[in-house]
Every structure is written in structure tokens, then in C-alpha cells.
Design a protein around this nucleic acid. Sequence first.
DNA 1: TATGAATGAGGGTTCATTCAT
DNA 2: CATGAATGAACCCTCATTCAT
Lengths: 199, 199, 199, 199
Amino acid sequence: MSKLESNKKQKKDALLNTAFSLFTSKGIHKTSISDIVEKAGVAKGTFYLYFKDKYDIRNKLISHKATQLFLSANHDLLQTEIVDFEEKVIFLVDHIINQLQKNKSLLNFISKNLSWGIFKSALTSPVDPDDLNFYDIYIDMLESSHYQYEDPEVMIFMIIELVSSSCYSAILYSEPVCMDKLKPHLYRTIRSIINAARL
Amino acid sequence: MSKLESNKKQKKDALLNTAFSLFTSKGIHKTSISDIVEKAGVAKGTFYLYFKDKYDIRNKLISHKATQLFLSANHDLLQTEIVDFEEKVIFLVDHIINQLQKNKSLLNFISKNLSWGIFKSALTSPVDPDDLNFYDIYIDMLESSHYQYEDPEVMIFMIIELVSSSCYSAILYSEPVCMDKLKPHLYRTIRSIINAARL
Amino acid sequence: MSKLESNKKQKKDALLNTAFSLFTSKGIHKTSISDIVEKAGVAKGTFYLYFKDKYDIRNKLISHKATQLFLSANHDLLQTEIVDFEEKVIFLVDHIINQLQKNKSLLNFISKNLSWGIFKSALTSPVDPDDLNFYDIYIDMLESSHYQYEDPEVMIFMIIELVSSSCYSAILYSEPVCMDKLKPHLYRTIRSIINAARL
Amino acid sequence: MSKLESNKKQKKDALLNTAFSLFTSKGIHKTSISDIVEKAGVAKGTFYLYFKDKYDIRNKLISHKATQLFLSANHDLLQTEIVDFEEKVIFLVDHIINQLQKNKSLLNFISKNLSWGIFKSALTSPVDPDDLNFYDIYIDMLESSHYQYEDPEVMIFMIIELVSSSCYSAILYSEPVCMDKLKPHLYRTIRSIINAARL
DNA sequence: TATGAATGAGGGTTCATTCAT
DNA sequence: CATGAATGAACCCTCATTCAT
């Protein structure tokens, strides 16, 4: 990478990092592009060289952060001896929930802005070329399972929607119960979803 | 009701109806208070006599519309002969989903802005004094059931979160599948949640 | 006084007292007529039955409060045995300064809004019929003096302007020195003004 | 100075000049930022690039105008042969009063908005780098005097407060007497203040 | 590629005043 | 006399976007 190119990457990364820090601390609507460029130490015009607008940078951040969350969980999964598909899913969900419990501003950011569309694109085609593709990992997990599942995409869809929307309320507001109390119900439901889809 | 009071109600209702119409057609962020009052035919200051700001009117609308959705479903449930708790829940969910399929802008509005906090307040303490209290109806349904359920609030919470978040994507974008294809999976999962909670 | 009339006086007094309390605590520009009527417990329209606008009630308050300050000082002067005109003036000034030191919000209110025009009208024609006329007292003081003074109105004008403007800065901000350090210089100057005017 | 920089200075100066013209003709409270930018021929946002709000530009104007008044008087003082400290002060005060008599709107603007705090900062640290520092000139005058003075800052404070507050009423309203009739009394008092402070 | 001064439409909000009750 | 709902002009300020440098 030439010096100029690394300089470019440095500016872009500064913008991404600063935007994430501001989005999570102040919220998207209260973060202006002025705020971002000022804290990132670049000129206003520069922002528009890399991103279309605030929502462009937001989507890229969500994709990246959501992928990181999955890959980190998967990385730790590989250190275990778990072989059963259902147990793997529970492990991943639990790992992700634990991360979100430790990082509530990340949870807030992701939940408030997540849509299945962005999410799916994050899973299937990561922005950062260094990010792996989580969807492929999921397919692998399915294939190495003893069982086959009906509509596996619907299955993972329902699990993700259920987890992400119930986490939001439970972790951030302990409503209707705190996360630790919700977990048994949630995991029981996830197991039901998987079992019901088993062919 | 005196002439003055009915005049007040008329103004407030005009604001609520106009706001709902604009929120659903243009989205909240692109709707300004100027837009609302202009279309409602009242002065700008009048808005602030009845609502604190744009988010106040939004929350009141969500509460009201969500409650209407439930009550309409419940009204039709009472016309049936269904006695089983599980079947009642499925009926209600199906009824609500059908309404949302017919009214996508309502779905978009509710889903984008729903949080369990607002939702619960909508269920337990409706804004409009004419609205019934859905939460009481739910309690009644539970009591007239043959079975008892563990943590019924958590149970309904998970069902609502699962339905509302998966409907959004399925109805509006047919992602990952269209609503009609999602329904069997969804209802199977709901039944699982209920069965698992049965004591 | 009829019941109706006392009711009127009660409302007017409530408005005056509330306005004073708000003007001194929040400042005039940040106090709205809405604030005043709300805290006073009367309707908005009622305000306009008694006062033309915010500045009308302000002027009446200043007159009243400034007169009270003078009369209170004069009342205490009469308890002393002071006979010398110069000493009387110093006593009055000192008394007033001490009151203002104890009541900084009153000082702030009066200083920020005082003009010789309002002031003079306060001294010569008090709003409240119960208030005495300070200017007459001043004339009496002059007449009972052994000396005569050139342009006594100019003399008292300069003294009042000097005292009121230097008090503001000294009491509220201790600038350029605190009031207690300023007093010797100030009183020395007042004595000079009086001596120089002596015929 | 680059073209861009001179362009900036031009815009800022246009705002300052326009604001001064409007503040003196209409008064501060009746001048809106919209008025200023419109008359200055710049966009609204531009105002906020240079000034925080209306009160920021006001303070900067007062500092600048007050400094100009002093420096102009001092400039003319240097053309004379006056050596005595007391005479210098009288000359300066007289010069300033004469300027204010010719420019009543300036007097009105300065008097209504002056506070010792703003004033002192104007004297000690002028906004415009071209403005000299009047306080240093005062110190020089003191040092070249034959006498020494007790608390010279208090002395100048009292003189300034006395002059500024009595000028306001005398020049603008001829109350209690017109400026020309007030002058002898005023100057006599100033001489007394100086003499009394002489060590 | 990078800058940052300039823009100006549009946002939310306040509040003195009126007038039908 | 008293009310308070309604008004709507006017306010300050933000900020995404552009473009000459």
C-alpha cells in the first residue's frame, strides 16, 4: 500500500471510529457531520469523499459491528468441543448476549438501527475485506449437523429477530424482566424453533 | 360536553389524525410540526397546547393505534367459539397480522417506533378514555384457561417481540420470505412458547 | 372597601408580588407573562386588566421597591440623633447599601432597570397611595440644615448615580473591589460632593 | 493577507458595522439576527461563524467603541501641553463627553449595555488587534504624575461610573439638568475624587 | 486529494395579545 | 370582571451540502 493510500485508509478509519463513538454516546440524530469531522480531525468536505451521508456511514458501521459480534462468538465456539448444531446456536446466542450486556451502547446502536436488510447484507457481504462471511459459516454448521432443517434461512431469521428485539428491552430496561431472568425462556424458545424445523 | 370542550377535542383530534397520516406517508423524521399544523388547519402554537413535541404525539399515536389493533382483534375473537387459550392467542396474532398486511403504512409506523416501554403503557393505560385496557383482557384469558403459565408477562413479551419484528421484514420486504410463507413457522414457534410455559 | 374591590386589590397584588419574585429570580427577559399569571393563579386575560404589558408592571415595581428602600432607611434615620445634613445623607446611603448587600437580587433588579426618569417619578409620585413621597423628605432635610446648597437636585442626582452604579459592580462582582473596601472611597466622595455644593 | 482572509475580515466587519447601526437605531432587543444578516448581505449561518449570539457581538462592539472613544481622546490629549494628571483626566472626560453629546445613539448604546466587567476587559484587552490598550496608558499617566494615588483602580472606577451614569440622563433627557449645566458639578466632583485619593 | 468558509432553507419553540365565553 | 383557548408572527439556531481555493 502506497503512502497515499494508507493515508486515505487512515482518514476513512478515523471517520468510522469517530462516528461510531459519537453515535453510541450521543445517538445518531444528535450527532452531526460537523461533530464527526471535527472530532476526527479532518475537513468537512473530506467526509463526502468517503461517504454519501450520515446514513451511509451508519449502515457500514452496523454491518461491521454486527459481523464482529458474530465472528468473535464463532471464534470462541471453535475453541470448544461442541458438536451439536442446537448447542452451537445456543452458545453463539449466549456469547453475543454477554457481549451486548457488557456493551450497552453498542446494543442500543445496533438495535435501534438494525433491519433485516442491512443485517443480511452484513452477514453475506461484509464491508471490510478483512471481515469473514458469517453466512457461509452458518451454512457449514448446518451441513456438519446430523439433521437437516426446513427453511434454514427462516429459522435463523426468527431466532435473530427474537433475540435482538427481546435483548433490547431486557438488557437496557430490565423490562419485562432482566436479561438473566429472560435467558431460560429465550433459550427454551430457541430450542423449540430449531426442533420444530428439524426434518 | 360544552361547545368549548367539544371544540378542543376537535382540534386535538385533527392534530392526531393529521400527524398519523403524515407520519405514515412521509415518515416521522421528514414530518415537521409545521406540516402537521398546516394540514390540520390550526395554528402552530395550538400544537403545543396539546403535545409536548413531535415524540409526544408519536407515542400517543402508537399507544392508541396499537390498542385499537388489539381491541379489534379481540372484538372478532369474541364472535367465535374459541375457548382454548393457545388458540385464542393464535387467532389474535393472525388477526393482527392480517390487519397489518392490509395496512402496511401502519405496520411501518408501529414497528419503527415501538418499544416495549411504550407498548406496555399502551396495553395497561390507554390514552383515550374510550380505549379499553388490553392487559386486563389478557389476564382474563389466562384465568379462564385450564392451565397455568409460568411468567405470563415474559411469555406475552416474547410473542409480541417475535411477531412484531418478524412481521416488519416479512410483510414489507418479503424478507427472508413473504408473510404467508412465514406464518406456519411463526405460529409453530408461538405454540412452542406457550406449551413450554405451561406449568 | 367592598368585597369586590378587595378581591381586585388581591389579584393585582398577587400579580405584583409574583412578578417581582420572578423578575428577581429569573430576570425580566426570561420571565413571560404566562409565567407570572400561572404562578399568581390568575387567568392570562386578567393581567391585561391591570397592566399594559411587562414593562408597565416592571416600572411600577421599581418605583415601589426603590421608595421602600428609601423610606426604610429614613425610618431608621429618625430613630437616631443625627442632625447634620451630611451625616444624614451618609447614614441613608449606608443603610441602603446594607439592604442591597443583603438582597442582591433586588440590587440586580433595580440597577439593571433603573433610569433617572423612573427613579424621579418614584421619588416624587409613588404608585401605591400608602407610600410616602421621598422627595419631600429630602427637601425637609435640606431646609432643616444650617447650610444652603447649590442645585440640590443635581447634588442628589450625582450621589444617587454614583452610588447605584458603583454598588452594582462592587456588591455583585466585587469589582474592582468588594463593597466594604469601596465604602471609604465612596463616602469620602459623597462628602466631597456635598461640601463642594455648600454655598 | 490572502484573498480568502480579506474576504473573511470583510464579512465580519460588515456584520459588526451593520449590528452597530441597527443596535443604535432600533435598540438591541428590537434587532434580530435576521435583521443584521439581511442588511449586511450575508447568510444567516455566516453570523454564527463569527459570533456566538447577539450578546457576543454586542459585547465586542461595546469594547471596540469604548476603546475608540478613549483612544481618540488620548490622541488629542497628546497634541496638548497638559502635564498635570488631574488636568489630563478632566481633558479626557471632557473630550469623551463632547463626543457622546455629538453621538447620542452611541451614548445610548454604551450606557444601556455597559458593565464594569465588559468595560475593564475593553480597557485591558482590546478585541481588535489594532486597538491599543487604554489601561496601560492610564498607568503611564499615573507614573508620570508628581503624586501617588491610593487605589488608582478604584479611583478610575468611581470616575467612570459617575460620568457614564450621569451623562446618560443629562445628555439624552436633560435630566435633572442639561449636560452643560451638569459639567461644572461633575468636574468639581472628579477633582475631589482625585484630590482625596492623593497620598 | 483535501480544505473549510459560506450557504439558507427549515427546524422547533415561545409568547404577547385577543376575544368568545 | 374574569377566563384561557387560540393565535401566528417572530425568534434563534442547526446543519447537510457546495465549491473556490
